[in-house]
Simulated scan of single mutants.
Amino acid sequence: MNRESAPMVEYDTAGENIGVLRLHNGRDNMVDHAVFLDLTEFKQWLHHNPFKGLIITGNGRNFSKGANIERIRAYKDCPEILQKELNEGKKILSYIEGLPLITVAAIEGACFGAGLEIALSCNYRLAAEQALFSFPEITLGLLPGFGGTIRLPNLIGQRNAKKLILSGDMITGKEALRLGLVDETTGKREALSKAVDLIEGLAYRYTARQKECFDQIWDQPETDCWPMYEKESRYFTELIKTMDI
């Protein structure tokens, strides 16, 4: 196993030619910055490794408990700076979403807020049955600001997405499977190994030439949603001005 370190993330490998991006920031893997990785460094890592798939997971017990609310509060008097940072972070998620690779979020423990929004950028989500999911922003006077208001309805439908976002309720992996938020549930501490199995099970079916064709077809950046992502960032930062701190 090869490991390199970067702020808030670790670059790792698993299985046969599978990249692993680990969220690594304390016990809860809090997202301190919307720009949670260096995009240039990330692109170079992918360029220099012939990966057939990418897994995003959390280091330790949790995938991520979401954004660091104390840091968000610090932007109350300068929300335009956070708005710019959110848009830069969304470029990272859009890049992940458009990768010509099989991408899987392997989820254990808590997957809240910004952490869940990172997971939504993947093709597939595998989660332990007792993993916990939530968009708690509504309880803070905010809304999801990292692409969740767009990606979640696209995945599970507007009706279910509204209920999850507006209630702030916490659901288990089993309920997330029922809603279509995750594709498969696993036993405790099995999400990563199951993600490896999923990628290897899909990737072995095609030839090198077929992969080249798929790469050309799938390597198209998604631009249609970008005005919606920018609007979400603007509304998120407007709500910060009204936060009770």
Rank of each mutant, 00 (worst) to 15 (best):
L120A: 08
L39V: 07
L126W: 07
E88Q: 13
C78I: 13
R71A: 03
A119R: 01
P79I: 05
R71T: 02
N123C: 07
L120F: 12
D38Y: 06
I81D: 14
L132W: 02
V104N: 05
A114F: 11
P136T: 14
L155I: 14
A105S: 15
A105F: 01
Q130V: 01
A114Y: 11
I72K: 02
A127G: 10
R73K: 15
P153W: 10
R125M: 15
F135L: 14
K65T: 15
A106V: 06
P153G: 11
L140C: 12
E80T: 12
G109K: 02
P153K: 04
A106Q: 05
K43F: 02
L54S: 03
C122F: 05
G53C: 11
L86W: 04
T40I: 15
Q83T: 01
E41P: 05
K84Q: 11
H47T: 07
I55M: 10
F51M: 03
A128T: 14
Y124C: 10
K91F: 01
F63W: 10
D77V: 11
F112D: 03
F112Y: 15
Q83G: 09
T103C: 05
A110G: 00
N123S: 12
F146E: 00
N62R: 00
G141M: 10
F135H: 11
L82R: 04
F133S: 09
E41H: 10
G109M: 08
I81G: 01
W45R: 11
N59V: 00
G141E: 06
L39W: 04
L93Q: 02
L116M: 15
A119P: 14
F42Y: 12
T40G: 02
F63L: 03
F112W: 07
L39Y: 07
G113N: 14
R151S: 08
A119N: 12
G60A: 10
I156G: 00
L54R: 08
R151V: 03
K65A: 11
G66W: 08
E88P: 02
I55C: 04
L82W: 03
A119E: 09
I118Y: 04
L140M: 13
N49I: 00
E129T: 13
L120V: 05
I92C: 08
H47S: 09
E117K: 02
I55Q: 10
L86V: 00
R73Q: 11
R151F: 04
A67P: 03
L126Q: 06
S121R: 05
I72S: 04
G157N: 09
A74Q: 08
E129R: 12
K65Q: 11
E129W: 01
G89E: 06
I55Y: 11
L46T: 00
Y124R: 13
P136I: 12
R73G: 07
